[in-house]
Design a protein around this nucleic acid. Structure first.
Length: 595
RNA sequence: GGCCCUAUAGUUCAAUGGAUAGAACGCGGGUUUCCUAAACCUGAAAUCCAGGUUCGAUUCCUGGUGGGGCUACCA
C-alpha cells in the first residue's frame, strides 16, 4: 500500500506541478494514533514543487488522490501533514488474505537466500554459564529463527574455549584440594563443581600473593610468583606437550562441564548444529600463521614471536603466536573461521559476541583479508551490550555473577508464587501446572532480555527486574492464553466462524485499528532480520497484545448477536493469537494454552 | 594518552530528520452479576550542557561533562 501510494503521489505531483519528485522526497508513514487517518504524507519536502503553503499543497494532493484512487476514502491536512484515510473495504480485503495465508511469514522470504553461520554462547570450560551467556545465547538463537523464516539456510554453532590457563587452574585446585570429588559423589552439577575449584584456586592464589606481599615483595612480582600460579603454568605446558595424566584429568573435568552445559542449554531451549572446540582449532590457526609467515605476510620478532602489521588498515600490530610457540585467542579464531568456511562455504558468518571485543573482530577480519580470503567480507560481528548488575559489571572471579541455572529455576519459582497468589490453575494436575510455570518464568526472562535493543548495555536487577505485569513476556502469553480460551469456549458452544466472507460494513474503528497492526507483522520481521534486532519483534508483540487487550475488554466476542460481527471478531482474535505465537516463537518463547 | 560505544520520567525500556517525545514498573484515583482483573481506564512525571546544519533535531555534525569498553605474549 505504501508503495502504491508513493506512485500515486508522484503522479499527483507530476500532474499538479509538472515536476518529478524523487522517491526520498515522498515520505509516507503510518498516521499517529491521535490523528484521523491511516497513512500520512509529510508535505514539507514537496513545497519546492508546489511553491505554496504546506496546507494548500496538502489540500491539493489530497483532493487529487481522492478523485483518482478509490482506496483513499478521505483526507485531512494538519499543519504540514496530509493524513490519508484508507477505505475499510481495502483493509478488510487485505485482512481476509492474511486469514487465508497458511504461512504468515511467507512474505519475509528473501529473493536470494544465503547460507549463514551463526556463532553464539561461546563458553569457557572453567565455570558455569551466567547471565551474560544467557543474553548471548538468546540473541543468537533468535537470530537463527528470524533468518531462517526469511529463507536463509542457517547453521547454529558454538565455540568452546576448552584450553588455556583458566582450565588448568580448576584442574590444579581439584588435584590439590578435591579429594577425588565428582559430580556423582557430591551431587553437584558438573560445571558448577569445576567452577567451585576455579573459585577456590583464585582464593588460595590471592592468599599466597598477599603472604608474599606481607613478606616484603612488590605486588606485581608477588602476583607473578605465587607458587600456585607457577604450578598452573607448568600444567599448561604439560597439557600442550600431551602429558597423559594431565590430558586424562582434562578430559574428565571437561566431560563434567559439558554434561552441565547440555542441561543448561536444554532448559534454556537453545541448541547447536555443530560445536567447535578451541583445543582442535588452535592447531589449524597455528599452521595458517606459519604458512602466512612463509608467504611474507607476517614478521617474526627478535624473541621469535609472530606478528602482523595492520597499520595500513588503520589498526595496530597484532601478536598471532607467542614467543614460546603457543597460541593466543586470535590464533584459534583464524583457524576456526577457515575451518568453518571449508565445511559450510557460508555467505555470511555472524559472531554473536559482546561489544568489548569490537577491536578483536576488526583485527580478525583484517587478518583474514590480508591472508587473501575473499569470504572474509562475509564475517559480521554481532556486537551486543553488556548485562550489568545494579552494583556494576559482573565479575566471575569474585563470584559476583548471576548464575544461569539459579536464575532459570528462580523464574519458574516466582511464576509459581504469582500464579498461586492469583488463585490460577487450581483445577490442573501438578505436572501440568509445573510445565506452565516453566513456560511463564522462562518467557518472562527471555522477553526481558530480548526486548532491549541488542546494541545497548542493560541493567539487570535480580530482585526487581523480572515482572509479570505490563511490558513483559507473561503479558503477551496471557493475551494469547485468553484467546485460546475464547476458542475453547466457542467449541463448547458449537460456534464455528466463517473466515471466508468477512463483511466490510461490520468493521468498527477498533477492529480496523487491530487489522492495521496485524498487517505490520511481516514488515517487522523483515526489518528485524535486516537490522539484526529481535527487540523489534518483541516490542511489536507487546503493542499488538496491548491493543488486543483493550479490544477484548471493550467488546464481547462470543456474546455478539450479529453473526457476521462475531465472525469478524473471532477472525481478528484468531489471527492475533497466530501472530503473537509466531512472533514469540521467533524469540524462542513458548506460549501456554492457559495460565 | 589514543580509539570505540553510550546519555530520554524516580527506575527499566521505545521513538526511518517530522505533528502534542511513547510504554512499563513504582506513586495517586477508578473498573468484576459479562469470553481469564497476570487485564482495562485515569492523574502527576523526562530528551546531560553549549553551539551548528535544517522549513523542522531525542535523532545528524562540533565541543564539553558523566558512564562503559578496548588499547595484553588474557579470553
Amino acid at each position: 500500500m505504501e508503495r502504491v501510494l508513493k506512485t500515486k503521489i508522484k503522479e499527483a505531483v507530476r500532474i499538479l506541478y509538472d515536476s518529478d519528485a524523487s522517491d526520498d522526497l515522498i515520505q509516507i508513514q503510518e498516521t499517529r494514533k491521535d490523528f484521523v487517518g491511516d497513512f500520512t504524507l509529510v508535505v514539507f519536502p514537496l513545497l519546492r514543487f508546489s511553491k505554496n503553503t504546506p496546507e494548500k499543497t496538502g489540500e491539493m494532493i489530497g483532493k487529487h488522490l481522492i478523485e483518482s484512487f478509490p482506496a483513499v476514502s478521505g483526507y485531512n491536512v494538519i499543519k504540514g501533514f496530509l493524513n490519508l484515510e484508507i477505505s475499510d473495504a481495502w483493509w478488510i480485503s487485505n485482512f481476509s488474505k492474511m486469514l487465508q495465508e497458511e504461512n504468515l511469514m511467507a512474505k519475509c522470504v528473501v529473493d536470494q537466500p544465503e547460507t549463514i553461520l551463526v556463532e553464539y554462547s561461546s563458553p569457557n570450560t572453567n565455570k558455569p554459564l551466567h547471565l551474560g551467556h544467557i543474553r548471548n545465547s538468546l540473541l543468537g538463537f533468535s537470530l537463527y529463527r528470524i533468518l531462517t523464516v526469511c529463507g536463509h539456510k542457517v547453521i547454529k554453532t558454538n565455540i568452546v574455549n576448552d584450553r588455556g590457563i583458566h582450565i588448568c587452574k580448576s584442574m590444579l585446585a581439584w588435584q590439590k584440594f578435591g579429594n577425588g570429588e565428582t559430580p556423582e559423589s557430591s551431587g553437584i552439577k558438573g560445571d558448577h563443581l569445576v567452577g567451585k575449584y576455579y573459585v577456590l584456586f583464585e582464593k588460595q592464589y590471592r592468599e599466597e600473593a598477599e603472604d608474599l606481599i606481607a613478606g616484603g615483595m612488590e605486588p606485581v612480582e608477588a602476583k607473578n610468583n605465587a607458587p600456585l600460579l607457577k604450578e598452573a603454568r607448568e600444567m599448561l605446558l604439560k597439557w600442550e606437550a600431551g602429558d597423559p595424566e594431565i590430558i586424562n584429568l582434562w578430559n574428565q573435568m571437561n566431560s563434567w562441564v559439558y554434561s552441565g552445559f547440555d542441561e543448561t542449554y536444554k532448559k534454556l531451549g537453545v541448541d547447536f548444529d555443530k560445536i567447535y572446540y578451541e583445543s582442535d582449532t588452535y592447531k589449524l590457526g597455528r599452521d595458517l600463521v606459519f604458512k602466512a609467515l612463509k608467504e611474507g605476510l607476517l614478521y617474526k620478532n627478535g624473541d621469535s614471536s609472530i606478528w602482523i602489521d595492520l597499520k595500513t588498515e588503520g589498526l595496530d600490530q597484532k601478536l598471532l603466536l607467542r614467543s614460546d610457540g603457543t597460541a593466543v585467542y586470535m590464533t584459534q579464531d583464524l583457524g576456526t573461521a577457515v575451518l568453518r568456511h571449508e565445511e559450510f562455504g557460508f555467505d555470511r558468518c555472524i559472531y554473536v559476541v559482546g561489544n568489548e571485543q569490537n577491536y578483536h573482530f576488526q583485527v580478525l577480519k583484517a587478518v583474514l583479508k590480508k591472508m587473501d580470503y575473499s569470504w572474509s567480507d562475509g564475517l559480521f560481528h554481532f556486537s551486543y551490550g553488556m548485562v550489568e548488575l545494579p552494583e556494576g559489571k559482573m565479575k566471575s572471579r569474585e563470584g559476583v555473577v548471576v548464575d544461569a541455572d539459579d536464575l532459570i529455576a528462580e523464574m519458574a519459582e516466582t511464576a509459581k508464587d504469582v500464579s498461586l497468589e492469583l488463585g490460577k490453575l487450581a483445577e490442573y494436575r501438578g505436572d501440568e501446572k509445573e510445565e506452565i510455570f516453566r513456560k511463564i518464568g522462562l518467557g518472562a526472562l527471555k522477553y526481558f532480555i530480548l526486548k532491549v535493543d541488542p546494541k545497548k548495555n542493560m541493567t539487570f536487577n535480580p530482585s526487581e527486574s523480572i515482572d509479570f505485569n505490563g511490558n513483559t513476556g507473561p503479558f503477551i502469553q496471557y493475551t494469547y492464553a485468553r484467546i485460546r480460551s475464547v476458542f475453547r469456549k466457542a467449541d463448547e458452544m458449537n460456534v464455528i466462524f466463517n473466515r471466508n466472507f468477512i463483511k466490510t460494513e461490520k468493521a468498527g474503528s477498533k477492529e480496523i485499528q487491530l487489522i492495521r497492526l496485524l498487517r505490520r507483522f511481516t514488515a517487522t520481521v523483515t526489518e528485524a532480520a535486516e537490522s539484526y534486532s529481535p527487540s523489534l519483534i518483541a516490542n511489536y508483540c507487546y503493542e499488538l497484545a496491548k491493543e488486543y487487550n483493550q479490544f477484548y475488554h471493550d467488546f464481547t466476542i462470543l456474546g455478539e448477536k450479529d453473526p457476521s460481527v462475531r465472525d469478524l471478531r473471532m477472525a481478528i482474535s484468531e489471527l492475533t493469537a497466530r501472530i503473537l505465537g509466531s512472533g514469540m516463537f521467533l524469540l524462542g518463547i513458548e506460549m501456554p494454552e492457559r495460565m
